Simulated assay, not measured.
Amino acid sequence: MAAREALLDPTGMDERSADGTLAPRPTSLRGLTVGLLDNTKVNATPLLRGIADDLVDRFGAGDTRLYTKDYFGTPVKDELLRQIAAECDVVVTAVGDCGSCSAATVADGILFERAGIPAVSICSDSFAMSGAAMAQVQGFPGFEFITVEHPVASLDEKEIRQRAATVLPDVVRILGVGA
């Protein structure tokens, strides 16, 4: 009988990847620090900044901090994940507007949830299936993420602001705070 080969999980996940529990939700954003994780895709920063401005102005968030990933197509690196988790109370990550970046954006949200930080992931609607597939692979098939109308990269400032305003109610709902 041939010896069994050890199989490696190509997703890089381990036994923790079966945890589908959301991080505890805040009752309010008042005074909280909101982390914004930009995945380097065009218009990710303006979209995140538009959402952040409204979270501060309308919901009393105390501070926002922008972080940028090294590469859009892979999940956030452990060092940056730990830094954001130590410095922020909630996280919004964006923007998945292609297959690999949508999957990575959803993976980022799941990683923050597992680190105890409530998170919202934003992808474009054309790549919702990619995001849902990543949630399944990560062992969190019920992970809810937000979709915005595709495309995102080619939008002007006014259009990006409109997209941010459109998703704001879902951002607030997923974070668990009232309007």
Rank of each mutant, 00 (worst) to 15 (best):
G176F: 05
S154M: 02
A179D: 09
I84M: 13
F59R: 15
V92H: 09
T27L: 03
L55F: 06
N43G: 05
R163F: 02
L22F: 02
A119W: 02
P46M: 03
L111N: 13
F143T: 03
L32T: 06
A104Q: 09
M134T: 09
D38R: 05
A128R: 13
A6G: 02
K77S: 02
A86V: 01
P10A: 07
R16L: 15
G176Y: 10
S124Y: 04
T33R: 14
F127Y: 12
V76L: 05
A104C: 10
A61Q: 04
A135M: 07
L36H: 04
D156Q: 09
D57Q: 14
A164T: 11
R16A: 15
E144N: 08
R82P: 00
A107V: 02
P10V: 10
I174D: 00
L175D: 14
A23V: 08
D70P: 00
M129P: 00
F127W: 05
D9T: 06
T105H: 05
A94S: 07
T11V: 04
T45G: 01
K69W: 03
C101N: 09
G96N: 06
P151A: 13
M134F: 08
T147D: 02
A23I: 08
L80Y: 09
A3F: 15
A94C: 04
R49W: 03
F145N: 12
A85Y: 12
K41V: 04
T27I: 02
E113V: 01
G142R: 13
L32C: 10
P141F: 14
L168K: 07
N39M: 06
K77A: 05
A94D: 00
V42W: 10
T27F: 01
D63Y: 13
A3G: 08
I117M: 08
R161C: 02
P46Y: 09
A94F: 03
E79P: 03
Q162N: 14
L29S: 12
D63L: 09
T147E: 03
G96A: 11
D156P: 01
P10D: 01
A133T: 12
A6N: 12
L81E: 11
D14V: 11
L155W: 00
L80Q: 11
D89M: 14
I51L: 01
F127Q: 06
A94W: 05
R49S: 01
D38C: 10
G109P: 02
E157G: 01
V167M: 03
V56K: 15
D14P: 04
G12Y: 11
S154P: 00
G99R: 07
R25H: 08
Q162A: 14
I110G: 02
V172Q: 09
G20F: 12
D70M: 06
A2T: 15
L32V: 10
A86P: 00
T64M: 11
V171L: 08
A165T: 07
A104V: 01
A44F: 03
P75F: 01
D54H: 15
R16H: 14
L7H: 13
D70T: 06
K77M: 04
A94P: 00
D97T: 10
S17E: 04
S17V: 00
D38N: 14
V95G: 01
V137H: 13
I174G: 00
Q83I: 09
A3T: 12
G99A: 14
Q138E: 11
